[in-house]
Structures are given as structure tokens and as C-alpha cells.
Amino acid sequence: MMAKQQYEQLSPEWFQPAPPNVGEQEKINRPSLTFWQDAWLRLRENKAAIVGLVMIIILALMAIIAPMASDRTYKDQNLRHAKLPPKIPVLEHIHWLPFDGRDANGVDVYKQRGVKEYYWFGTDDLGRDLWVRTWYGTRISLYIGLLAALIDLLIGIAYGGISGYYGGRVDNVMQRIIEILNGIPYLIMVILFILIFEPGIISITLAMVITGWTTMARIVRGQVLKLKNMEYVLAARTLGAPTSRLIFKHLIPNVIGPIIITTMFTIPSAIFTEAFLSFIGLGIRPPEASLGSLVNDGYKSIQTYPHLMIIPAVVISLLILSFNLVADGIRDALDPKMRK
């Protein structure tokens, strides 16, 4: 503690009253951000999520452009060019990369068979261009993933919203139905469903939706129940706001966070399920291709032509990984409680 004396040479001028300006007291020092701006800032800081986002964009662009840019299609067969290893201009000169057109024994197959063209990812046993098929397959996988997520979203919001909003007996019955559905192993339902409705993009998507929507419905219901009794909603109600306005202006903006997170996790899991189905022979039928069916086909010649399995396997892994990274990132960004 300091002694008084030290301060005695202070100027009396300094001891004039100077009460603070009242208006200034309420000034907020930091700029205020909306919820979404804040979330975006947090997402941007998450390097893994940004890497994932960039990868998704690249893979999606490839899926859209690559099959169109090539003069070959996913189903064009050319038996004279069957089972060629990958060969990419420029990269072919870097020998430790597997893009030099040589097979497992180091023989340059292109030279041996006199093939002038380059097949960047090689060809399969029917001479179909794997580059085109891989990106075409990515397109199908993405399409199925997005479609399944979208349908889940619509059914889930409707079911969960109604269940949570009306509550009481309606809710009770609707929840029992979900509980029973959830007791049934997901995959078994999907397999049975596809056995009945021949495999195809729509039937595979629907099969996944049949059990997939319950997650979304539960989350929406939980959020609706939680928000329904919050004071600001009660306040809006007492002020006579109509039900539709309550749902759209108050509930939806608040449940949108968990919905986005759930959807982001649905996409990779749908892509995975499709690949799995293809793998056990219930997926897309040839000549159509999805990443899963390509991996499955690749297995048949894994010892001699590993590229047929490895290339689509890498792409599907990157695709699912990217979606998971972005989904994780969005969850952390939207849920400030998880903030470090």
C-alpha cells in the first residue's frame, strides 16, 4: 500500500469532478455479430472444415465436368483397350507414381499393345475408361447422398414438427411409431426393401429414407418441444401471433442449426450405405456405376489390376471424409458451447 505523501505534488486541477457521460456507459465495446456471422467466423477458423469444403467443391466439380469433358462415356466399351493401367501425361515420367502406364510387372502395356491414347485412370476389363466411370460414379454417389438427405429433411421436419408442436396424444402415438421403427435394424430394412423393388437410384434412395428420416424427426421434435415453452414464444403467442407465423418466424430459425448439422451427417452416411449396398450386390446395376460398385468390381482383379479398386476407393474415402470434416466443423461452429 502506498503512502499518501507520494501523491502530494499532484495538481489540484486534477481533482475536479468529471462524472462520466451516461450515454457512453451503455456503449458496447465489441462489434456485435449476428448468430450466422459468428458461426461463419468460427467455421472459417476451423482448418479441417475448410479443407473438407474445398475438397467437396473440387470433387463435385469433377463429378459434373469430367464425364462431359471426355469424348468417351461411362458405358463405351473398347475390348482392345481392356485392362490398361493408368497413364497420365507429364506424371508418367515420375516413376514412383503409378501413372506411367506400366502394369504390376513393370511392362509398359500401352507400348506393348500400341495404344496411343492416354487413359488417366486406366480401363476396366471391358475397356471402359475408368476416369470417366469414376467421376460418373462420384456423380451418382453425390446425387444419392443429396437426394436421401433432402427427403429425410422434408419428412423429418414435417413429422417432428407436427409431433412436437401438437404434443399430447398425437405426439405420444407418433413417438411410439418411431421407437418401433428404430428397433428394427436399419440395414435389414434397406436390404429387404431393395430385394422387392429392383436396385436403382430411386429405390436405393427410398430404402435409405425409410428408416433414415427418424433421426431428423426426433431432432426437430426435440427442438420444437424445447422452444415451444420458451418465454419469447409464449410472449409472441399472448400477443396473438397466428400458428403459421410462430412456426416460420420463431421455431424454424431456431431449429435450423441442428437440422443443418443432421443433414450434413446424413449425406456421407447415405453415400456410405449406397456403396455398401453396391458392394453386397444390391446397388446400381452395370453399365451404370457408383463409387461403391466400382470398388466392388475392382475387388475381382485386386491382385493383377489394383488400380481398378484403389482409385474409386480413394475417391469415395475422400468424399465421405470431406463431408464428415465439414459436418464436424459446422456442428462446432453452430454450437458455441462446444467452443474451445
Binding site: 499532484l10 486541477e13 486534477w14 481533482f15 462524472p19 462520466p20 456507459q25
Partner: peptide
């Protein structure tokens, strides 16, 4: 900044005990 009895010196120097 919250003190209605603030003096000019309050904005410049920390008061001792």
C-alpha cells in the same frame, strides 16, 4: 466510467490504497 463521483484524475492515474 461508472462512477458518478469520478474526478479528472480517475481517468489518468490509478488510485492507491
Amino acid at each position: 466510467p461508472r462512477n458518478p463521483y469520478a474526478l479528472k484524475i480517475d481517468y489518468e492515474l490509478e488510485p492507491p490504497m
